[in-house]
């Protein structure tokens, strides 16, 4: 009986191992000094609540019903050594309604950094490369079917200042060529010139705020009354891109 059980165990183990090859993940073992980057949709620094009334810089009331943007080439920066460590995710559709789309894990080779950078949007080449999958799947609702190209970022909500009949505003910001380019390189630094040093067996989390209020009032003053919707590439879309490029900041860093 004993011999029988051992044999069964061996056989099962062997079979499990033979299957393992196909299950095995490419990721090598997680390094102990992992950094988590967590994007937090906020309005004026406070966590975003859908359908909650807010007021923008023009005194216009608004609520938010959808907020999404593409992130790529997320990397840590060290201004002294200049090493970039890029996360393995090519494109991530960060969606305020889907919590796990907002956090990234990076395992750098070096332990100090003082900022991070990323691209907001989809590179021009990926706008002209045909049918794509994963987060670039057109089924994600971030692709214009009549004028090929990705919507880099999307903000939707309602306001009594909206001039469209249903009182909504819909900012679908895209465009990938020339002056109409809406992809933006974002760089944020750790406050007060500090430096983050990762410690073994501790998880460092960097919280990056994405402040929706900046869409209206940033590099350009864009009131809801003047534009309730943007649905195509052009100079207006590029102005919104200038504004959302300024919506990010490192809010806090925790260690646990």
């Amino acid at each position: 009986m004993k011999a029988g059980s051992g044999y069964i165990l061996c056989a099962l183990l062997f079979l499990l191992c033979s299957c393992q090859k196909e299950l095995k993940n490419d990721n090598s073992t997680l390094k102990s000094n992992t950094v988590h980057i967590v994007f937090r949709p906020v309005v004026k620094g406070q966590p975003l609540l859908f359908n909650q009334p807010y007021t923008n810089a023009f005194g216009e009331d608004y609520t938010v019903t959808a907020f999404r943007f593409y992130i790529s080439a997320l990397s840590l920066k060290n201004n002294n050594t200049g090493f970039p460590v890029t996360s393995e995710v090519k494109y991530r559709l960060a969606d305020a309604a889907v919590g796990n789309t907002l956090s990234f894990a990076i395992s750098p080779d070096q332990n100090t950094f003082n900022g991070l950078s990323f691209q907001l949007g989809v590179d021009s080449i990926d706008n002209v490369s045909g049918a794509q999958g994963d987060d670039l799947d057109p089924a994600r609702g971030m692709f214009w079917t009549w004028n090929s190209g990705y919507i880099m970022a999307k903000l939707e909500g309602a306001s009594s200042y909206s001039t469209v009949p249903n009182g909504n505003f819909t900012y679908h910001i895209g465009g990938f060529s020339g002056e109409n380019k809406t992809m933006r390189s974002i760089s944020v630094s750790v406050p007060q010139g500090r430096q983050i040093t990762l410690k073994d067996n501790r998880i460092t989390t960097v919280f990056v705020n994405a402040d929706i209020d900046k869409w209206f009032d940033g590099a350009h003053a864009l009131s809801i009354a003047s534009n309730a919707f943007v649905h195509s590439p052009g100079s207006l879309a590029a102005s919104y891109a200038d504004n959302y490029a300024g919506m990010f900041s490192i809010a806090s860093i925790t260690e646990e």
Partner: peptide
């Protein structure tokens, strides 16, 4: 009888794993 059952379980288990692969 137990041995026979063990062998049968082993065979069945092995078959299932092979199928999965």
């Amino acid at each position: 009888r137990r041995t026979v059952i063990s062998i049968l379980i082993m065979l069945l288990g092995g078959f299932l794993f092979l199928e999965a692969c």
